[in-house]
Design a protein around this nucleic acid. Structure first.
Lengths: 267, 267
DNA sequence: CAGTGGTCTAGACCACACT
DNA sequence: GTGTGGTCTAGACCACTGC
């Protein structure tokens, strides 16, 4: 290797050459340079070269490393920033996004009080109801892309806002990546659960899909949320993914919606 | 005016000068050039200079018109495209977005069958239950930024998928912009309702906010959706906006969710 | 073929944050 | 001041569409 920072690890075809011959294979199905750069940055993120909260090298440095212009790196970072994988801070640098921040406290929680916001009611009271290992039931296994019977963790907890139990959620995590997670760990933690996952297990949730239904409260939901059996509650099933669309958490939650609503913006 | 296409209509301070002195006021709270260009394009859209489905001038033409570089126009259009106000088509041009397109048929409807997709069940059967003029109740007026008692249109309709009535929605429109809308117009229309609004009234919905709750079906909901009274149904309240964040429709809908769910992607 | 959007580069300068 | 991201320009060339 020359004096340069080591460039590409396994270039399918030496991803970048001189500026003059920078094009990447003439016709058959090819992605622009900045997409390739995006992929390389993504790989470094997955590999943990830069951890959540870290500052990544400057655009200029990355441009030198990948042997492209600063503008090309910029466009790659732009897309990663719109995907919420990176956060730009003018004058400071570009940082790996993390769930451990004040203003992203509830980034994945769309429940809002009918008036005001979640913070205005003070912090949520959390209560871990249970945390146990078991063999994945068929539907859980399917959604987490595991085999039926593979070890998974099952966690159940209740969140209360302004002294009203509002959310009951049950979640399943693949046993492998989350080996060592205990009820104590969860109970003692103060911040967002996804921040804990980052810090303790190196698992960063980057996106999720939710499916929402209205259902009647069953006995357990009624008890935990202090509603009558059969009362209408919102059922929110979430499948959360890490990098590369790998599902890492299935979460089935029930929300009381007398004083709250699920908020969504369409465009 | 010189030979150029007429540039800026009311430049607060001649938005663009030479390349050398292109900056726009040194310190006090100023937006970048491309934001100003974005604003100018937006104004043309509102003014109806280009209508939904139309092709707008090429980036190069717009650059000449606004006396900026093509790259600056490009960035402005980029943002308008991510906001879904414009649609780029490589090799063809850039077009004003419209609701009258196959693949945007259900752009604002997030209800999905638990398996398959809405189209796979064939077209929805629509039935207009009522359409009448009335004076705005207080809450409707507030959300539509009208005065209580201002004239509004109230429409009620039912959508059925695969012979099952699934959606009951009630919607309110400001009387002014929608003068002349009748039950017949609505009943005879085949396409998306928002496409009708574009074509007949020049009102283009660009974004919306939805608030979702689980509620018990009342007598009317139970009857229209063929569920038992008290059954849990999803209540979706939507406030839809035209350009410039002007609210133009309030819609309160009830969804059956035995075989469907509301889908949402988080990131 | 000409016209359009899409990519890439190189260099200049501005705005913000830290020291 | 130095270093970072943010804006703007100018020009070259590529890829897609339709004449």
């Amino acid at each position: 290797m020359p004096a340069q920072t080591p460039p590409l690890s396994d270039p399918p075809q030496t991803a970048v050459g001189d500026a003059s011959a920078a094009w990447n294979g003439s016709s058959p199905s090819f992605s622009p340079l900045y997409q390739q750069i995006k992929g390389l940055i993504l790989r470094s993120l997955q590999a943990g070269e830069w951890k959540p909260g870290d500052m990544i090298p400057s655009e200029f440095d990355l441009a030198a490393r990948f042997r492209v212009s600063q503008g090309t790196v910029r466009k790659a970072i732009d897309e990663l920033a719109t995907d919420n994988l990176l956060v730009r801070r003018q004058g400071k640098g570009t940082f790996v996004a993390t769930h451990a921040e004040q203003h992203t406290q509830y980034r994945f929680l769309r429940l809002m009080p009918d008036s005001g916001n979640l913070d205005s009611q003070g912090p949520a009271a959390r209560h871990i109801v249970e945390c146990k290992r078991l063999r994945a039931p068929a539907d859980v296994a399917r959604q987490l892309q595991l085999r039926t019977g593979d070890p998974v963790l099952e966690v159940k907890r209740v969140l209360a806002f302004a002294d009203t139990p509002t959310i009951l959620e049950e979640l399943w995590l693949p046993g492998g990546p989350f080996k060592g997670l205990t009820q104590d760990t969860l109970a003692q933690d103060q911040g967002p659960m996804y921040a804990l996952f980052e810090a303790q297990f190196g698992v960063r949730m980057v996106r999720a899909e939710e499916k929402i239904k209205a259902v009647a409260a069953n006995a357990e939901v009624a008890e935990r949320l202090a509603v009558t059996m059969g009362a209408p509650v919102l059922m929110v099933e979430r499948l959360a993914y890490t990098y590369n669309d790998v599902p890492m958490e299935l979460r089935r939650a029930h929300y009381r919606t007398e004083a709250h609503h699920y908020r969504n913006d369409l465009s």
